[in-house]
Design a protein around this nucleic acid. Structure first.
Lengths: 166, 166
DNA sequence: TATTGTTATACTCTATAACTATA
DNA sequence: TATAGTTATAGAGTATAACAATA
């Protein structure tokens, strides 16, 4: 018989269909669970979501500065430094100097890094298939529209707490 | 006709309508922006989202044990200890001993705590109106269904990876 | 033995400020 | 002056393990 969803109880504060606090909690839970799932899938590779994002971005966009990576992924520049330190120590990416601007880097994937980018993308696909695969194209489109609407409205009025406007 | 989404670039990794990684990033961004908005609104009261959740829950459910609060809000018991320390220091809640179980507390709001619970709920309503008020009942229903589906599918498979031997 | 709560610890994420070297 | 990157630091979220008192 149907028991309550285990562990987390997204409706604990009320019904998210009518209760804003419960809807916010549901949003938080879905995000946290999704990230946790991806981390679990990436664990055998020895990387986590933060590395994954940069690997995939570099594999896609080619050599990029740290600031560029931060802008693409919504990360602070200091966060990119830390993640890049880890990726270099893992031998997956290298900091080469940009030719035209000696302040900046042109971050490149190593051969191993490119392999990791693709292997981890495949691993991530398995998580995605489970989490998002059941969505019809219309469902998915709707979800993106709804989330984007919430995001832009939050960013509008959040007391000038602008994220990465650098 | 469509220009790029402002501020954060949730589509930086790709189009979330077709790219799973971008959809995950969008989910993260929406959550983070929502929490940030609520924190900004609660700041004048001197509390944050974590206190808000407990205040509202206590105001609604009446005296509750710490473990009960954690279960309702998806918080670890050690997290509840920390938040309760803060709420007691703020004079908003008190730890009374449960009558039937001398291990447990029956956490109660103070008069001031009840006032805070309602004032902060009103403040939260303003955030909610901006973030969620534009959703039609059908939109909202759909969003809840989609997020719940993602959450349960994530919780299903992500914890099975832990070896967790005894 | 199991559970409530406490403490210690640790890792992640986010954010800021101060600093360097270039531009 | 402004920008790319580095470093240090801090707060918040999440999690676990060890422990005392009680069930």
């Amino acid at each position: 018989m149907d028991t309550e969803p285990p562990g987390r109880a997204p409706t604990a504060l009320g019904d998210p269909r009518s209760d804003d606090k419960a809807l916010g909690l549901l949003l938080a839970s879905a995000h946290e669970a999704a990230r946790s799932s991806l981390n679990a899938e990436l664990r055998p590779l020895g990387i986590e979501t933060r590395h994954f994002g940069i690997l995939v971005t570099l594999d896609r966009a080619g050599p990029t500065s740290q600031r560029g990576l931060g802008a693409l992924l919504g990360l602070d520049k200091s966060a990119v430094v830390r993640i890049m330190d880890e990726l270099e120590r893992l031998g997956l990416a290298v900091r080469k100097r940009a030719e035209h601007d000696r302040r900046a880097y042109a971050i490149e994937l190593t051969t191993e890094g490119r392999r990791y980018a693709r292997t981890s993308a495949t691993a991530a696909d398995e998580v995605s298939a489970r989490l998002f695969g059941w969505l019809s194209p219309a469902d998915r489109d709707r979800l993106v529209t709804l989330l984007t609407g919430i995001l832009t409205r939050a960013d509008d009025g959040s007391t000038g707490n602008e994220p990465n406007r650098s």
